[in-house]
């Protein structure tokens, strides 16, 4: 899952801390999402998109890299 949070933050002149406070998460979570370490829930993704007044698809791009496998992650 790719995202453009960093770009939208720059456009809105927001720091990670500002965005984190706006959507009620920690700064570390924003950082983890930006770096692709953590995939946010649908609820959080909506909140991020609404903060920037855009749609989810504008912020997040889904990439089907490999077939879905069931197992221990």
């Amino acid at each position: 899952m790719k995202n453009k949070i960093k770009v939208f933050r720059a456009m809105h002149d927001m720091t990670q801390e500002d965005l984190a406070q706006a959507i009620g998460v920690t700064r570390q979570t924003i950082l983890a999402i930006e770096k692709g370490k953590y995939v946010p829930s649908l609820d959080l993704a909506f909140r991020i998109a609404r903060t920037f007044n855009v749609t989810i698809e504008d912020v997040f791009q889904y990439e089907a890299a490999s077939p879905i496998t069931v197992g221990i992650d």
Partner: peptide, 11 residues
């Protein structure tokens, strides 16, 4: 570590 707890960036 997996979910980026100790990640750092330029900010």
């Amino acid at each position: 570590r997996k979910y980026g707890d100790w990640e750092t960036d330029e900010e």
